[in-house]
């Protein structure tokens, strides 16, 4: 509209489908996230280990290259459940760091100045809002966890052959499930803390505290009471137990996989409850 024609004109154009509307905040969030050089650098660093793994897989099936590098074939790790377990552990840790950096900035800016009322007074439900914010983390963390994991699986399958892929299809499933479970847990923790701690830095510290304080406290409980149940509040241990079970890798005595899965479920439910109590159009004082 020309500046000189300053008069109210209603909008009568087309409308988009409500199904994909939850992608709108996601687009704006990505535009903001990718403005941060630190995050882009970190994302690039997150690709270092998958690239190293891909190189290992390539070299382990390429004798001339090994010979050229003067390496023995036995020196390289075998590509099996253990290999992918460690891949998930490394990438999972990096996913955690990314969540601590990105998560706090997702919900908090909307809650800090009452902007949530603007979202929720539109044809946009609370569930869509949470789904939108969660998708930001899910997509970002997927690029450094199961996506490169499956690429590694495909490279290995390409090098060894179709039979290997069929025999080890469970590995692809384990990569997918292990990564997605971790991503969901991290996303929910990140969003819940972002909703509850209305100071970005403090929310980031709180995400880290969930991991490290839980780990320290868990080990203290184990030492004082001579038990293994302290691991239940050690998120890293809980997740490692789940991954070890999925990749059929024995880590020694620790938590039972059932307890670990139940603990993850509990963490998710607590986070959902925390989000539900904060993500509202208005705060009700009873």
């Amino acid at each position: 509209m020309a500046v000189y024609k300053q008069q109210y004109r209603p909008y009568e154009g087309p409308r988009t489908s409500p199904i994909w509307r939850f992608l709108v905040p996601l687009r704006y969030s990505y535009a903001k996230i990718l403005q941060s050089r630190l995050l882009v650098l970190l994302l690039a660093l997150c690709m270092f280990y998958p690239c190293a793994c891909a190189t290992i897989i390539y070299l382990s099936h390429n004798s001339p290259a090994l010979a050229a590098l003067r390496l023995r074939s036995g020196i390289l790790p075998q590509v099996d459940g253990r290999f992918f377990y460690f891949f998930c552990t490394v990438q999972g840790s990096l996913a955690f760091v990314l969540t601590a950096l990105i998560g706090p900035g997702l919900v908090w800016p909307d809650l800090a100045n009452g902007a949530l009322a603007l979202y929720l007074s539109r044809p946009f439900a609370r569930l869509e809002y949470v789904a939108s914010k969660m998708t930001i983390l899910v997509l970002l963390l997927s690029t450094i966890t199961w996506l490169p994991g499956l690429v590694l699986f495909a490279i290995q399958a390409g090098c060894v052959g179709w039979d290997w892929a069929v025999d080890n299809a469970w590995l692809a499933g384990a990569i997918l499930v292990a990564s997605i479970v971790w991503i969901v847990v991290l996303s929910l923790i990140g969003l819940a803390l972002s909703a509850w701690v209305r100071w970005r830095t403090a929310a980031g510290v709180a995400v880290l505290a969930v991991y490290f304080v839980g780990a320290g406290l868990g080990r203290a409980i184990n030492n004082i009471w001579q038990t293994r149940y302290g691991y239940l509040i050690d998120l890293g241990e809980v997740m490692n137990t789940v991954w070890a079970g999925l990749f059929r890798y024995y880590r020694g005595p620790g938590l039972s996989p059932v307890h670990a899965w139940l603990m993850l479920l509990l963490v998710c439910l607590v986070c959902i409850k925390a989000l539900a109590s904060k993500v509202r159009g208005l705060e009700v004082v009873r």
């Binding site: 154009g13 087309p14 409500p18 100045n113 009452g114 902007a115």
Partner: peptide, 27 residues
């Protein structure tokens, strides 16, 4: 138009208004 503050501090006015428009179904 809510009574209290309702804005996203680190967004430009045009970005926020555009996003709200999109959330209401505008292409």
């Amino acid at each position: 138009m809510p009574e209290g503050d309702a804005y996203i501090a680190d967004m430009s006015a045009v970005a926020m208004v555009r996003m709200m428009g999109e959330l209401s179904g505008l292409p």
